[in-house]
Design a protein around this nucleic acid. Structure first.
Lengths: 231, 231
DNA sequence: TTTAGATGGAATTTCGAGATTTCGTGGTTT
DNA sequence: AAACCACGAAATCTCGAAATTCCATCTAAA
C-alpha cells in the first residue's frame, strides 16, 4: 500500500465512468471524509487528475468536473481521430509481426465481448469488461508508433473522450455497428493499407463529430449527429 | 492576488529557458527557501507545472526536469507539425478577415525582430522578445481553429518543444532561414492554400526531425539532422 | 573483490490547524 | 423590483512539523 495511488485510481475510475455529474464542483471535504485522509492529500490527487483533464482547476475556486457539451465532444473526437490515425499509420510501418499479433489478440478479445453484449439479455456484467477491451484495442493500434509522446497525448484525449461519452446510451444500440467498424479497422491495418485504415478510424468515430466539420474533412460520407452514443 | 501564481510563472519561465539542467532533480527544499514559502506550496506548483510536461513527477521520488534527447525532440516536432498544420488549416477555413489581420500583425512583429536579430552585433536584448514573438506567431496561426482542445494540446507540446530546444544554438545561425519560412507560411495562409500551408509548416520544423521519419512523411525533401537548433 | 545488509541523513509525503478567500443569505437603499 | 452592501458559513490556500521513504555510505560476510 504505497501511497495515495489508491485514491487516485478510485477517483479516476469514478470520473471516467461519470460517478460525478458534469460541471459539478468536486467537494474536497466530502472526499476527505470518504477516504479518511487530510485535505492536502485530496488536493494533491486532484492536481494529478487535472493532468489528464478529468477535473479542471481554477484559482481560488477549487476543482470541478468538466462540463459536458456537444462542442467538446466534437473537438475531442477530432483530436482523437487525428492522433489515432497517425499513430496507427506509424504502427503499420514499423510494428511488424509482433504488433500484428498483439492487435489480433486485442481485437479477438474485444470482438468476443461485443458478441456477448449484442446478444445478452442482461448486459451489465459485460459493460466494464467491454470498456476495458475497447480501450485496449485502440491503445494497441497506436502502441507500435514509436512515439511515447503521441501515446501519452492520445491517452489524455481518450480519458476526456470517455468521460464525456460514458454517460450516454447505456443501451449499446451502436454495438452492432461497432463490431463492423472494429473489424474493418483490423482488416485495413493487417492489409498494411494506411489510407484505408485512417479512413476507417475516422468513420468509426464520425458519429460524434458535428456534421459541418465532417463535411470539410471527408466531404463524401457525412453523418449528422442525432444522438450521442458511447464510443 | 493569487499567491503561488508568481512562483508558477517564474518557474515556468525558468524551465522553458533552461534555467535547470535537463534530467536534474528539482530540489523542492531549495525552491522553498528561494521563494520563502512552505514545501506544500512548492509541491503544488510543481504538480501544476507537470500538467504542461515541464517537470515529470515520480512517486516517492519527487520531480525532475525531463531528459533532453534527440528522440524526444523528434516526437515533439512530429506532434507539433501535426497539430499546428491541422489547426492552421482550420483557421484558414473559418478565421476570416479578423484572423488574417491578427496573423499579419503577429508576423510583422516577428519579422521586425528577426531582422534586428539578424543584423545586430549584440543579440542578447532581442532574444527574449524574439521568443515571445515567435510563440505569438505560431499561436496566432491556430488561434481561429475553433477548438480550444487543440489549442491546449498544442500549447503543451510547444512548451516541451521549447524546453528541449532552448538550450541549443544561441548563435541564431538559423535566423535567416527562419525569416523565409515564416514569410512562406504567412503567404500560403493568406492565399488560403491549405495544402501548401501544411507543407510550409512542416518544412519550417523539418530540421528537428530525424531523417528516416521525414522520408516516410515527405519522401521528397528530407533534411538530415546534423545539429539541433532553436525553433 | 564482490555482494548483502545496516545505518544515518536527506528528501518525500501526509497531517491538522490557522489564515485567507469565496459564496450564499438577508437586509438596506434607490 | 433591482442593485448594492454586510455578514456568516464554507471552501480554499498556506504553513510547519511529524511520519515515511529513498539514497548514499559504510560494514561484514562470502
Amino acid at each position: 500500500m504505497p501511497y495515495d495511488t489508491d485514491i487516485f485510481d478510485t477517483l479516476r475510475y469514478r470520473l471516467m465512468t461519470n460517478g460525478f455529474d458534469h460541471g459539478q464542483k468536486v467537494r474536497a471535504e466530502h472526499l476527505r471524509q470518504e477516504f479518511g485522509c487530510s485535505a492536502s492529500t485530496i488536493r494533491e490527487v486532484l492536481f494529478r487528475l487535472s493532468t489528464l483533464g478529468l477535473v479542471e482547476f481554477q484559482e481560488q475556486r477549487g476543482f470541478r468536473v468538466p462540463e459536458r457539451s456537444r462542442e467538446v465532444i466534437h473537438e475531442l473526437t477530432h483530436l482523437r481521430v487525428l492522433l489515432e490515425a497517425e499513430g496507427t499509420a506509424m504502427s503499420i510501418r514499423r510494428g511488424g509481426v509482433a504488433w500484428e499479433a498483439r492487435l489480433t489478440a486485442a481485437h479477438h478479445q474485444l470482438s468476443h465481448l461485443e458478441m456477448r453484449l449484442n446478444t445478452a439479455a442482461d448486459r451489465s456484467p459485460f459493460v466494464d469488461l467491454w470498456f476495458g477491451a475497447e480501450a485496449q484495442f485502440h491503445e494497441t493500434l497506436i502502441s507500435a508508433c514509436g512515439s511515447q509522446t503521441l501515446i501519452d497525448a492520445h491517452f489524455q484525449v481518450y480519458c476526456r473522450f470517455r468521460q464525456q461519452l460514458m454517460v450516454e446510451d447505456r443501451n449499446f444500440d451502436f454495438i452492432s455497428n461497432n463490431i463492423k467498424h472494429h473489424q474493418q479497422i483490423l482488416d485495413a491495418a493487417m492489409a498494411g493499407d494506411e489510407a484505408l485504415t485512417r479512413k476507417k478510424i475516422h468513420d468509426h468515430l464520425a458519429r460524434h463529430l458535428l456534421s459541418e466539420a465532417v463535411e470539410e474533412a471527408y466531404p463524401s460520407g457525412s453523418t449528422a449527429l442525432t444522438r450521442q452514443e458511447v464510443c
